[in-house]
């Protein structure tokens, strides 16, 4: 993202905002991952402790989800770059100066 339109002061606040957001996003991901893997792996309530089968399922669920997120992250970055490139070309084709 381009924050060049912001003042130094705003950029500082923006960084603080981003930092807080990253923490929040991490906690959201964590809660989401717990919920998803509990949903998929834990279905036996005849016991109070996790079975070894459930435990194996959990490990795979977490590992796969992390690898999935990383792969989505890579492709997301590429698609996003592509999109911004197209938008710039469109603006130039329309003879307009890019927004300051």
């Amino acid at each position: 993202m381009d924050f060049s339109g912001l003042s130094d002061n705003d950029r500082g606040r923006m960084n603080a905002y981003i930092e807080q957001k990253q923490m929040k996003d991490f906690l959201r991901l964590y809660a989401n991952l717990v919920d998803r893997c509990f949903e998929n792996c834990v279905n036996d309530f005849t016991s109070k402790a996790l079975s070894s089968k459930e435990d194996t399922c959990l490990t795979r669920c977490v590992d796969k989800f992390i690898k999935h997120s990383e792969r989505v992250g890579l492709r997301f970055g590429e698609q996003n770059a592509l999109l911004q490139q197209q938008q710039q070309q469109q603006q130039q084709a329309m003879g307009g100066a890019p927004p300051q």
Binding site: C57, T59, R60, C61, F65, H68, R71, V72
Partner: peptide, 16 residues
Amino acid sequence: SCHRKCIPPKYHDNEL
């Protein structure tokens, strides 16, 4: 969305 579409909830291993 892509997790729902691409990763079946039966986890046979921990690699994609």
